[in-house]
Nucleic acid binder design. Structure first.
Length: 272
DNA sequence: CCGATGACCTGACCGC
DNA sequence: TGCGGTCAGGTCATCG
């Protein structure tokens, strides 16, 4: 599920709720989510305090006491839930990991497809693993953004989603950003004009900011830590709108496979 | 080094 | 109702 807006929504919420809490117990019914031998994971994490919660791209990292960090990647369908959440929503029922905190409350990971991963390593090791992840659009200026994008040859949609180039953008927001910029997803990075690059840069920040303010997108399974949906799905312009009218020109939105993913775009506003 | 392709999983939905 | 196919906010390993 999660791209920048969903992960950041989760991060902010967890920061306000579980920062400075200590793990007193852990549970899982799907040990493969934890990329470490379960008994050593359990032994190492119990008694550790959460001292910082940060994000790099789509990765969510809990720095713990004792020089350890716990990295979580929610992949397609993972989301964190805390304390008392909306249990009527079936999407909140795929809980495969639970952390019991020293205030007696539970931090849970619900993940329908079980792709999420949790790693526990030394802080420096986690940081090293994340070196390959590029900056998100808010961390760089337009010149650096353009330089990074141009350096990678290929179709703009795929390059925008390449986490080593720029991070935080996935399938939904790349479609939204390119629609907003009037750029066809298959345009080659080398052939995009400077003006268009500026538009893509500005749109990236605009769309991600808007989506964050809306609490993310919950077309399928994303929920915040209270188990509630985000609202960006109600105002998206391209993703998932195949066959519906473009909000700018009324042409019908098209869907096309690019790489392995579905791209949604307006064939008349976004020309090849 | 690069791109293309499957693998990892489960559930929803659509057409017959 | 049931079956089979397709699709899904993401990465990884492997192969040519």
């Amino acid at each position: 599920m999660p791209e920048f807006p969903e992960v950041e929504t989760t991060r902010k919420s967890l920061e306000s709720k579980v920062l400075n809490r200590t793990f007193v117990d852990v549970w899982t019914d799907e040990p493969k989510i934890i990329k470490k031998d379960w008994s050593s994971f359990r032994k190492e994490i119990i008694g550790k305090k959460i001292v910082r919660i940060w994000r790099k791209g789509k990765n969510l990292i809990f720095d713990l006491s004792g020089g350890l960090s716990m990295l979580t990647h929610l992949k397609l369908t993972g989301h964190y839930l805390y304390d008392r959440w909306n249990e009527k929503d079936p999407m909140n029922s795929f809980v495969h990991a639970k952390f019991i905190l020293d205030n007696g409350k539970t931090l849970a990971l619900s993940d329908l497809r079980k792709f999420a991963k949790i790693e526990l390593k030394k802080k420096e090791e986690i940081e090293k693993d994340l070196e390959k992840i590029g900056p998100d659009p808010f961390q760089i200026g337009s010149e650096e953004f353009e330089a990074k994008i141009r350096k990678k040859r290929g179709k703009i949609k795929q390059v925008l989603m390449d986490q080593t180039v720029v991070s935080g953008i996935g399938n939904i927001y790349s479609d939204e950003i390119l629609w907003e910029s009037n750029v066809h997803p298959e345009r080659k990075t080398a052939d995009i004009s400077e003006k268009e690059m500026q538009d893509i840069y500005k749109s990236s920040k605009k769309i991600l900011k808007k989506a964050l303010e809306a609490g993310g997108t919950s077309i399928s399974d994303f929920r915040n830590t209270e188990g509630i949906k985000g609202k960006f799905g109600e105002i998206k312009k391209a993703y998932g709108r195949e066959g519906q009218k473009c909000f700018r020109c009324s042409s019908l939105i098209k869907r096309k496979k690019i790489g392995q993913r579905s791209a949604h775009f307006c064939p008349s506003c976004q020309k090849l």
